[in-house]
Design a protein around this nucleic acid. Sequence first.
DNA 1: TCCTACAATAGACAATGTCTAAAGCAAGCG
DNA 2: CGCTTGCTTTAGACATTGTCTATTGTAGGA
Lengths: 138, 138
Amino acid sequence: MSDLLERLRGRGWRMTAQRRVVAEVLDGEHVHLTADEVHARAVAKLPEISRATVYNTLGELVTLGEVLEVSTDQRAKRYDPNAHQPHHHLVCAQCGAIRDVHPVGNPLADLPDTERFGFTVSDVEVTYRGVCPNCAAA
Amino acid sequence: MSDLLERLRGRGWRMTAQRRVVAEVLDGEHVHLTADEVHARAVAKLPEISRATVYNTLGELVTLGEVLEVSTDQRAKRYDPNAHQPHHHLVCAQCGAIRDVHPVGNPLADLPDTERFGFTVSDVEVTYRGVCPNCAAA
DNA sequence: TCCTACAATAGACAATGTCTAAAGCAAGCG
DNA sequence: CGCTTGCTTTAGACATTGTCTATTGTAGGA
């Protein structure tokens, strides 16, 4: 975590209380929060922080490559602090819970040239969907 | 197309001018339209159709399994009339163009049990991203 | 300590989608 | 063929998520 703050400072990021709080929220919870959830947790630590600042800061962290934006539903974007290890996501269709997963194989290699239509394909996103144990039990 | 209308009528769908127009728009263009784009094309054929009706009808078509909802960006949902053949999507990161693609292999099989966390995994969505020939040329 | 450029703020605005209450109409029935 | 019934449509308010702007604040170097 202080790693994160150190890295950011080293990259010329001006350190403010607001940015520190947002970074701490993301680093503290290894879950996938929406911007509003980040905002709520940030407000708990620093009541006067504004919504715009949280959005700005999240956007900057994404640009800097320190967090990933994931859209597993088409409601709010979620922010994934696990940006330094490539991974995909497993989503519960009922409660929306998200787990990071690491499938074997390389899906990029599974797309034949004849299916690329002249595109330069650089990335692939895989989202598995199912029902989590909690929801299955209920 | 009339296939589609027949299928729907056979399933007890009350046929109205509005629903016919929405179905025709989807069937006529084999592209991936947003709800607003569907609405715009529907209005061209039936000026008094309302936005809510288009949203309602699209939702019903999705429920009936006749079209698929896809979210390749986190802006508007897009509607894919190619619901009867499983496929994935290839998206241009610059202009947003979408192509249907058919990778080889089965990504579901690539997720080991140890990476399933007790979930019952039933589905997988794969989105390839890259740059289309048009954007690469520009 | 002071300056200056960068950052934070409140709140308006925008895009997309959902809901409601009232009016309209498809289709079965006599 | 013309009712009747209940499903459908409509306009527009509302909700959610995100962006932008003009003003005020402040981090960090001189």
